[in-house]
Design a protein around this nucleic acid. Sequence first.
DNA 1: CTGTTAGCGCCTTCAC
DNA 2: GTGAAGGCGCTAACAG
Lengths: 343, 343
Amino acid sequence: MKKKRISITDIANELSVTPSTVSRALNGGGKVSEKKRQEILSLAKKLGYRPNPIAKSLLENKTHTIGLIIPEFTHHFYSRMLAGIESVTSKAGYQLLICTSNEKQKQEIKSTQTLLDARVDGILATISKMNDKFQHLQEVMDSGTPLVLVDRFSEEIETPYVISDDFNGAFSAVDYLCQSGCKNILHIKGPANLSTTFNRFMGYKEALRKHEIEVKEELILESSDANLVEKIRFCLKNQQVDGAFAYSDYLAFEIYRAASDLKIPIPGSLSVIGYADEPLATYINPTLSTVNQQPFEMGATGANYLLNKINNPDIGLEIRSLETKLVIRDSCTKRAAKECQFS
Amino acid sequence: MKKKRISITDIANELSVTPSTVSRALNGGGKVSEKKRQEILSLAKKLGYRPNPIAKSLLENKTHTIGLIIPEFTHHFYSRMLAGIESVTSKAGYQLLICTSNEKQKQEIKSTQTLLDARVDGILATISKMNDKFQHLQEVMDSGTPLVLVDRFSEEIETPYVISDDFNGAFSAVDYLCQSGCKNILHIKGPANLSTTFNRFMGYKEALRKHEIEVKEELILESSDANLVEKIRFCLKNQQVDGAFAYSDYLAFEIYRAASDLKIPIPGSLSVIGYADEPLATYINPTLSTVNQQPFEMGATGANYLLNKINNPDIGLEIRSLETKLVIRDSCTKRAAKECQFS
DNA sequence: CTGTTAGCGCCTTCAC
DNA sequence: GTGAAGGCGCTAACAG
């Protein structure tokens, strides 16, 4: 059913020249008499000739396509990251082949295989949460396909990555809480095994240390805890909590709920800061202070880096850590104005 | 830098047979002695042979890739739609090449060209808001590349599409409001020129008609109106509005704001229903009743339909309208329990 | 300047 | 059963 696309040979026949000549005329490479070139060009245009990139790919062993593996589509964070990636790749004339892992290792492995089979020129991946093996990523690297990790990385795989500066992001948030007078700051940790969980926790602790506040076990909760909701409630009730820093905006929202149940006013008696600057942060009441990770920029940086690596295979193992932005909204008591951003 | 992938010829040489034989053994097609077949298969496995789809594409004029054009990544709706599409295509062994139009016609045209150049087997598109020309889509169809439109369509282009049943979605929402006693129902319309805007408006009017309520011009606002916020406020203050149906959840949120400013309690004095069931609907206070369009299913349906059309080019111009689900939350006074879904 | 040849990786006749 | 030949669309090297 597909209409036959016209090929270089078609226009060669029409003009009684060889395909080589047409190719040369079209690519400007070799020498072709000006007259022929014009003839060829105009006929090509008239016929609506479009080169077949498949043939070129076969020849050059390049596809001008980059493969992307993301854990899921639905999080705003990944959508923004995707938008950042797309903005760079489309500008550079690369196509984007998309796969998802659904946060499952098995699907991630399948995706890498798919992308390798498709002969993509490079792969951009956010590894899934549950990863404990990395052989599939090692295979990508062994195949010589440039690989750049975004947002999450692992010590076990030696490839460049672009991440957000979680340590400083968390630090700035907790530092802010301390400066505005909070003494008992609750922290809800993220999923175990994630570097982001670890780094945000470290940032939290470091900020407390700076302000000479003791780190109390009772104030640290795990998001995976089946009784999280009750524990938050218990904590707010019994620990004189006056500040809270959550691994995510969604967890911060759980704190809102508990506080609302307990009639603890935010920000009156409790200042809350979340993480990620998801849209919900501006919709809940009071609007939520949070740490913006600049996912668009993260995606764009990763894509740029990958394209760079595709064209200069020798560039080394580089790591980029993107600055975060502390966004203070209505969920915190304001401290004396400083260099942070209000919104 | 890329390591040479091993080819059918490599393994043929190794075994002193011809590539043809290897090809036959691998594809099971022709007759090959069982012994040779085993040798070939095991060597292929040992060497980690993977067929080159590029070569096959060139031969078969098929890429097993479908192209996708969406207006933007950041809306939850499109993310869900994308997830639905991906779930179908990946299961069917098709790749997904992604482009975005950023709601701009110019970029949409460029995207169709890119996808056509890439020789995708079919295109799934959500046309951009601002489209007034459709020649690029006509070109897609003329090229013989199956095209299916999702979420939005135009009368000007004769191709199958999958949309949400906006008329009934709106009707069910407004009908609900009427049944719970609302007499003066505000409607905020969506962007002009979109079929969704039109159909939701029609659903609104039809529901009023059913309940013999007069349609009042003063109760109908345009989202594009520069003074929208003030007009909502004016309306709530002066028109005894007791119900509101907005084109989107975001517009419903504007109504919340105005109501909050005017100290009009929701749902006490005003019932509000939005549209799309965006995440914010569950985060705002009170939680927002809304119409769920099942974007995941819409994407999946579109993808299935496209794959079907790719394999049966003769199937006709079909149109699917997906049912919506009215989701009643806390922003409405409850009516007597009926068949609608609570959440 | 332009035509011929060869080959990217694979598959499909057509002979033997 | 298996090999040889041709071709998908294109480019590069080598002849003229």
